[in-house]
């Protein structure tokens, strides 16, 4: 177990390193941040001084190693645009995205899995067919459109919920969270629904397919023949049998939403990471981009590790003989 963890941590370090090099070179190819940083009518002296200040006159590899050396000490540089340390900038945005993503992914799973299991258990019932129709809708309607419709319906016409922003926040562990205040929660509802819709549909489909398959197995027949109630069969046997694909998709969706909730965050002007990365790309804010994408790689590595560990917890057959 310990060997497995060490191996994974080394792998993770390698992946993050490769990611940083790729992004560093890639961003350099996009354009020269100096054109964005200073106004075109600045004097030649100011221009030269700025270039020297950010080290743009050095060769790329030297810039990269300088960056790497500082990053190892936790210093990812200054944001060109916000003029503050990148680490602090990202950390200030992370909670907003984290709570929104968690709300969306957890909500989608906790609601989608039971509905999907029911649809797989009683595929012919009218309710199941309605659920499946809903899931097709969730798959095919684009996120930005749903976001606009939600705002139009619930914020503009009905006036029930706010259309954007995080609302009031309260501190926990020294960070500001929206979910701790009633106002913040209200602000979270619409963007969370918007983000959750696709995952909700995905969870319904996965749970339904797994349940339909599991209901035909001898395991379920044998459990029924032993007199187990349908409820026990579903909750104790079937749910455990279909858990692995559900956990896998949960992890993948959690990671990708955490990293790329851009559309929803933009529509609801939610001050999260997605919005930060889009802004930094348009303004060629290289330190932010590099650090952010390294962080995204790290998210996926941690989430995948958690998923792998939960496989072992869920399926005893995977505990032995793992590489």
């Amino acid at each position: 177990m310990l060997g497995f963890l060490i191996q994974r941590i080394l792998q993770a370090a390698l992946v993050v390193l490769a990611m940083s090099a790729l992004v560093f070179a890639g961003v350099f190819a996009i354009g020269n941040p100096i054109d964005v940083l200073i106004s075109p009518d600045a004097t030649q002296d100011i221009r030269a001084a700025t270039i020297a200040k950010y080290g743009f006159d050095r060769p790329l590899w030297e810039q990269y190693f300088t960056f790497l050396g500082r990053a190892l000490h936790g210093d990812f540089g200054q944001s060109f645009v916000y003029n503050m340390p990148v680490g602090r900038l990202i950390l200030s945005r992370l909670p907003a995205t984290l709570e929104l993503t968690l709300a969306a992914v957890l909500g989608a799973t906790l609601l989608g899995v039971p509905l999907g299991m029911y649809a797989g258990y009683r595929p012919q019932s009218r309710f199941s067919k309605a659920v499946m129709a809903l899931s097709i809708l969730g798959f095919s309607v684009p996120t930005f459109w749903v976001g606009l419709v939600l705002i139009f319906a619930f914020a503009v016409n009905l006036g029930w919920l706010p259309a954007g922003g995080r609302g009031a926040t309260a501190p926990l562990f020294g960070v500001e969270w929206s979910f701790l205040t009633a106002d913040g929660l209200q602000h979270m509802i619409l963007p969370a629904i918007n983000l959750a819709l696709f995952k909700f549909a995905l969870m319904i489909r996965l749970a339904r397919a797994g349940t339909r398959e599991a209901m035909l197995t001898d395991t379920v027949k044998f459990a029924r023949a032993a007199g187990l109630s349908e409820r026990t069969v579903l909750l104790r046997h079937v749910l455990r049998l279909i858990a692995i694909p559900l956990v896998t998709v949960f992890g993948l969706e959690f990671g990708s939403t955490l990293a790329f909730a851009v559309v929803t965050e933009t529509i609801f002007s939610w001050p999260g990471l997605g919005k930060l990365i889009i802004d930094s790309i348009t303004s060629l804010d290289r330190p932010v981009m590099v650090a952010y994408l390294m962080l995204v790689a790290l998210f996926f590595i941690v989430i995948n590790l958690a998923v792998d560990l939960s496989y072992a917890a869920l399926d005893p057959r995977m505990r032995k003989g793992r590489a």
């Binding site: 197995t217 001898d218 395991t219 027949k221 044998f222 459990a223 029924r224 023949a225 032993a226 007199g227 187990l228 026990t232 104790r236 046997h237 455990r240 049998l241 858990a243 869920l314 399926d315 005893p316 057959r317």
Partner: peptide, 30 residues
């Protein structure tokens, strides 16, 4: 009646027992 008065044993035990639950858990459920 099932399991209490009439119970059933199937052909392939590797298919009938749930692979992800301990034998004790499955017996306790029954």
């Amino acid at each position: 009646i099932r399991g209490k008065r009439i119970s059933m044993v199937f052909q392939d035990p590797s298919m009938t027992l749930n692979p992800v639950l301990t034998v004790g858990d499955q017996m306790l459920l029954a």
